[in-house]
């Protein structure tokens, strides 16, 4: 690792954060879609979905938070793609900088942008009646899970950012990620799903992450479920980081 890694990453992070503040629409559009889903499901479909004694907005919020992250990371792929296409990526790579700083700056920018979007979505949920008796440790645990999830998905987004041929291609990979929560316990209890779908839904990462966040919000004992969720997040992060760095090395060598 170059001695300038942290300094260079900070300089480049400053650059991408400036991009975000000058195109605040990227944060707004990231938050708008999950908020629209929140409104649609709570006020239109929610009444017909049986979640027992839990108010539907409380039931739904964890899944909506994951959808927020999944749609937010598309901008990482987009911004990285724009850097590749404009030639500024090559300029940075031909300079005496720590080379991987360029990627880390985009990843950290994604964490900042997604955190803002997540706060906006939670505030809207509070306005819609979301309530949680969770204390500070539980909220911090939720933030930690979401941070890991954001990092994992962002490193995944780095790959299309590096290899895409068009801006649309760079962002399109996030569509299946946005869809994945529908096939989980995010919107409806999995018990109502038919056999094979139910097996898939109960064993895919979104369900365990959603359940862990839901338990933390409702002050249920989290137990082994939390560790499954963390293992999914950490595993995804390691795999995504490895694939992204591998793609990056093939690109710059």
């Amino acid at each position: 690792m170059s001695k300038h890694f942290f300094g260079d990453t900070a300089v480049l992070l400053g650059r991408s954060l400036r991009h975000i503040t000058r195109s605040a629409d990227t944060i707004i559009t990231t938050a708008v879609m999950p908020i629209a889903m929140l409104l649609l499901f709570v006020y239109v479909f929610g009444g017909a979905i049986d979640t027992g004694s839990v108010p539907y907005v409380n039931y739904l919020l964890p899944g909506i938070l994951l959808i927020t992250v999944a749609s937010g990371i598309a901008y990482t792929a987009f911004r990285l793609f724009m850097d590749m296409r404009s030639g500024i990526f090559e300029r940075f790579q031909s300079m005496p900088t720590a080379r991987s700083s360029v990627l880390w700056a985009h990843v950290l920018t994604s964490v900042v942008a997604n955190s803002i979007s997540l706060v906006v979505v939670v505030l809207v949920a509070l306005l819609m009646g979301f309530r949680s008796g969770a204390g500070l440790p539980a909220w911090l645990s939720v933030a930690g899970i979401l941070l890991l999830f954001t990092l994992a998905l962002t490193w995944l987004a780095v790959i299309p950012g590096l290899v895409a041929k068009t801006a649309d291609g760079a962002s399109a990979f996030s569509y299946p990620l946005i869809f994945l929560p529908f096939l989980s316990s995010a919107f409806v209890p999995t018990a109502t799903m038919p056999g094979p779908l139910r097996v898939f839904a109960e064993h895919q990462p979104v369900t365990s992450i959603v359940n862990a966040i839901r338990d933390l919000f409702t002050q249920q004992p989290v137990g082994a479920g939390l560790w499954t969720a963390l293992a999914w997040c950490a595993g995804l992060l390691v795999v995504a980081y490895g694939l992204a760095m591998n793609t990056y090395r093939r690109k710059v060598s």
């Binding site: 650059r15 991009h19 404009s86 030639g87 090559e90 300029r91 031909s94």
Partner: peptide
Amino acid sequence: ISLTGQFAAVDEIL
């Protein structure tokens, strides 16, 4: 070295 590539590699937003 410094490289000036085929297309002006400048940051449009800055």
